[in-house]
Simulated scan of single mutants.
Amino acid sequence: MWGSFWDIIWWFLWIFFFVVYLFALFAVIGDLFRDHKLNGWLKAVWIVFLIFVPFLTLLVYLIARGKGMAERSAREAGEIQKAQDAYIKSVAGGSAASPADEIAKAKALLDAGTITQAEYDALKARALG
């Protein structure tokens, strides 16, 4: 099986193309389930063709629906980014606070001895600037 160097290269090449094919196949299947405009019967037809004529169906899908696939993927990435930003803002707490609120919090920390006068001045300058 591993008779020569070129046999090894040939095996790696086939493995590479198989992995690329699997990535494309799972991307298409994921896109099928992400697409809400396509009804269930058409999704089932695409899946059946992906099972019985996989390579040709994959190429046809990428050619026929590739642009929509990219748009759906970008829209989902945007929604995920918005959800992440909203979560980070909710966890950060007070990111929409006014400068007066931030200065009051910094003054409370200074009075409690948690921060130094220099740190208070820096926080105050950042809140005002």
Rank of each mutant, 00 (worst) to 15 (best):
G3K: 07
G3H: 12
G3D: 01
S4G: 09
F5H: 11
W6Y: 11
D7L: 10
D7A: 12
I9C: 07
I9G: 07
I9Y: 11
W10M: 10
W11H: 10
W11K: 11
W11N: 10
F12K: 01
L13W: 11
I15W: 06
I15G: 03
F16P: 02
F18V: 06
V19C: 07
V19P: 01
V20Q: 05
V20E: 06
A24E: 07
L25T: 01
L25Q: 01
L25E: 02
A27T: 05
A27M: 13
I29M: 03
G30H: 00
D31L: 05
D31S: 11
L32K: 05
L32C: 04
F33R: 11
F33G: 09
F33N: 14
F33K: 08
F33Y: 15
R34N: 11
H36T: 15
H36G: 12
K37W: 06
K37Y: 10
L38R: 08
G40E: 12
G40Y: 07
K43Y: 08
K43D: 06
A44R: 11
A44I: 06
V45D: 07
V45F: 05
W46E: 02
W46G: 03
W46I: 02
W46A: 09
W46R: 03
I47L: 15
I47M: 15
V48T: 10
F49R: 05
L50Y: 05
L50V: 14
I51H: 01
V53F: 03
V53L: 00
V53Q: 05
P54S: 10
F55C: 01
F55G: 06
L56T: 09
T57E: 01
T57R: 04
L58V: 04
L58G: 00
L58R: 02
L59P: 03
L59F: 15
L59Q: 12
L59A: 14
V60H: 04
V60N: 05
L62R: 09
I63S: 00
R65S: 02
G66K: 15
G66T: 15
K67L: 03
K67T: 07
M69K: 08
A70G: 10
A70C: 09
A70I: 12
E71A: 08
E71M: 08
R72Y: 05
R72V: 02
S73Q: 13
A74T: 07
A74P: 01
R75M: 13
E76D: 12
A77R: 10
G78R: 10
G78N: 07
E79M: 05
E79S: 00
I80P: 04
Q81E: 15
A83M: 09
Q84R: 11
D85I: 07
A86D: 14
Y87E: 10
Y87L: 11
Y87G: 06
I88S: 00
I88A: 14
K89W: 03
V91W: 01
A92V: 08
A92C: 03
G94V: 03
G94Q: 12
G94F: 06
G94P: 07
G94C: 00
A96Y: 07
A97N: 04
A97P: 02
A97H: 04
A100D: 14
A100Y: 07
D101I: 14
D101F: 11
D101L: 12
I103A: 01
A104W: 07
K105T: 03
A106Y: 02
A106R: 03
K107M: 15
K107L: 15
A108M: 09
A108K: 14
L109R: 10
